[in-house]
């Protein structure tokens, strides 16, 4: 069985702070991590490999050369092969252009039975690349997977909904997006760490010329969407502080509630 896992290196947005004076993001010292949902996607692929050692797990990422680190981490967890799509032409891609580029790489690799993505990446929170990639490859998709059961050549997926879940059935090949309910990602292991560090070039890097792609269909140039402007979500109001003891503050607040008709006079 051939499995592809798409992973993205993202800034740890939990560590980003905004400078409230200048309204800019403080990205200095913010670590880069593997997008959390993607680790759940990878973990599922690796459990299938645990069950059947003939399973081949490829991890694929598009990003700057620095993203090699993320892919190496995946190899150290047990993935078999890692490919990084990196080229200046790919920069500034929106989700459409990202999916288009990833799809070209998938076509160059062997056919996959299963493609796994994270549900969403924490930098953009769009949850779009998975479904867009599935459409590009003309295979079905199941998003929001909270559990997956693979049998023969088909899957049964519990697809998380707002008020429960649906059990969805489909044949392979299919693209599934993973939620954090799916499993508990493993750590890197010594055996694979050693193997990866003995390899000359554990991560293959492909650029535009390695892929069958129209240069006008990648990166910023190929992106249908554009960022027109970005700004800090400025604090809106002028706060009025009450002072005094807890009782005094409470009394003042209740007075204001009355003025605002929030409670009966």
């Amino acid at each position: 069985m051939n499995i592809l896992v798409c992973i993205k290196q993202v800034p740890d947005t939990r560590e980003i702070r905004v400078d409230l004076e200048t309204g800019t993001m403080i990205r200095k010292g913010v670590p880069s991590i593997i997008n959390p949902d993607d680790l759940h996607a990878l973990e599922y692929a690796l459990t299938l490999k645990d069950e059947d050692p003939d399973t081949h797990v490829v991890v694929l990422s598009m990003g700057p050369l620095q993203a090699k680190e993320a892919l190496i981490e995946c190899l150290c967890m047990g993935a078999d092969q890692a490919i990084l799509l990196s080229d200046r032409a790919f920069g500034g891609a929106d989700t459409w252009a990202t999916a288009n580029t990833l799809a070209a790489a998938v076509r160059r690799l062997q056919p996959f039975d299963l493609i796994l993505c994270g549900q969403q990446a924490i930098d953009g929170d769009t949850a779009q690349v998975g479904p867009q990639l599935a459409e590009r490859l003309a295979i079905p998709q199941i998003t929001y997977a909270q559990s997956v059961r693979l049998e023969n050549h088909s899957v049964q997926v519990e697809r998380q909904m707002e008020d429960g879940y649906q059990l969805v059935k489909a044949d392979l090949p299919i693209l599934i997006t993973a939620t954090r309910k799916l499993n508990q990602p493993r750590y890197m292991n010594i055996r694979d760490i050693v193997k990866v560090h003995q390899a000359d070039d554990p991560v293959q890097v492909w650029g535009l010329e390695d892929l069958d792609l129209d240069p006008g269909q990648v990166g910023l140039k190929g992106s249908p969407t554009r960022v027109k402007r970005s700004f800090s979500p400025a604090a809106s109001s002028e706060v009025r502080f009450f002072s005094g003891t807890a009782d005094e503050m409470a009394a003042s607040l209740i007075d204001s509630f009355r003025t605002l008709n929030l409670i009966e006079k």
């Binding site: 779009q128 479904p131 867009q132 599935a134 998380q160 249908p224 969407t225």
Partner: peptide
């Protein structure tokens, strides 16, 4: 919604158009 976020990107990709989430 969960369904809308399943449909939107699939459709945008088919139509080769942009999609802005949330």
């Amino acid at each position: 919604t969960h369904n809308g976020r399943d449909l939107g990107p699939r459709l945008a990709s088919r139509l080769d158009t942009g999609l802005t989430a949330d």
